[in-house]
């Protein structure tokens, strides 16, 4: 076998190729486990003893030269993209990846709000949507026959006495305060229901986030500080916050929290009803009567509670103008978030 001929053949093969995959094919042909050089090495043993030494040297020399040729060729092929002649990359073509799904904007906002409170040490818990009249009203100091009940108009269940669909997330306060001992710092997001005719700003089902904190020495100033931190985290550091006296049966003193309108920056526009302020949540110090109902000593403990509508926050944050969009589940809507 003419060793030189083999070397010429290898050089010829390498000259023809211009891709790494072809290089690997040629490499297998000569240097592979069953390649030509392995065959030559194997043949040494079959030669007469006196020829073995010389032939062995020749094969070794060929092997080394071949290895060098391959290294050289590989360098050639990989040295800069320009060398890869056959590449047809057009980076303007669509990228290839699996499509990601999106969370519903209501979930997104809920998660964002919960994450802020979690950072401040709150736990996130849930509560049932079917509630007792006691938890939804009585335990929260909302008298059965009182105009304040109207604000919490309610779907009652047929066949179950005094059971209803919670009209706010506050009954979770009653449940959790009965169940756990202070100190408490809890946030409860969830669906709520009220018999409202559906239009651009009303829905018979919507979402709220309730939060409360109970410990010794919890003060109104704490509520203010905490909610300001929250409002800035959601709507940006440059907003102003206003804490305005209001009435809720389950808190006293109570406050509604307004932020300076994020559309007109407080000048007055159609979104804020020319007021320059947007109401974002209700809050206050937990009423001693509520503590009495859940068996917490109001002399020792004080606490605050707050609640907000998730749809409202989402509408303000994303500039959505119709609450019905949330429940149509149009993918063209959902995919924007």
């Amino acid at each position: 076998m003419d060793i030189n001929l083999i070397q010429t053949q290898i050089e010829g093969d390498l000259a023809k190729i211009d891709s790494l995959s072809e290089l690997e094919e040629v490499r297998a042909k000569y240097l592979g486990r069953k390649g030509l050089l392995a065959e030559l090495t194997g043949a040494i043993a079959g030669l007469p003893v006196e020829q073995r030494g010389a032939f062995g040297k020749q094969v070794n020399a060929l092997k080394n030269q071949t290895l060098d040729l391959f290294i050289k060729k590989e360098k050639e092929l990989t040295a800069g993209n320009t060398v890869v002649k056959k590449s047809n990359l057009d980076i303007g073509m669509p990228g290839i990846a699996q499509e990601l799904g999106v969370l519903h904007p209501i979930t997104r906002v809920t998660e964002e709000v919960c994450a802020i409170f979690r950072k401040m040490g709150f736990s996130i818990l849930g509560g049932p949507e079917i509630e007792t009249e006691y938890n939804n009203f009585t335990g929260l100091n909302i008298p059965l026959e009182h105009p304040s009940r109207e604000a919490f108009d309610t779907f009652y269940l047929k066949d179950y006495s005094k059971m209803l669909l919670r009209s706010h997330t506050s009954p979770a306060q009653v449940r959790l305060m009965k169940d756990k001992k202070p100190p408490l710092a809890i946030v409860v997001p969830g669906r709520v229901y009220r018999p409202d005719a559906v239009d651009a700003s009303h829905s018979f089902m919507f979402h709220q986030i309730e939060g409360f904190m109970v410990d010794e020495n919890i003060k109104l100033s704490d509520l203010k500080g905490l909610l300001e931190t929250f409002a800035k985290a959601v709507f940006g550091n440059d907003i102003k916050m206003r804490f305005r006296p209001h009435f809720f049966p389950f808190t006293e003193p109570s406050a509604e929290v307004d932020i300076s309108c994020i559309i007109c920056k407080g000048k007055g526009c159609s979104v804020c009803g020319r007021k320059g302020w947007l109401e974002i949540l209700g809050s206050g110090m937990i009423h001693p009567n509520v503590f009495k109902h859940v068996g917490i000593d109001a002399k020792k403990y004080t606490g605050f509670a707050f609640g907000m509508g998730v749809e409202r926050i989402a509408m303000l944050k994303y500039g959505i103008n119709d609450i019905r969009l949330f429940f149509e589940n149009d993918l063209r809507f959902l995919r924007q978030f």
């Binding site: 100190p183 710092a185 109104l220 100033s221 203010k224 804490f243």
Partner: peptide
């Protein structure tokens, strides 16, 4: 209300 200061309560977190 605007004259009441803003403070941050210290929370004893419940890792439940």
């Amino acid at each position: 209300y605007e004259r009441i200061p803003n403070t941050i309560p210290s929370v004893k977190p419940d890792i439940a």
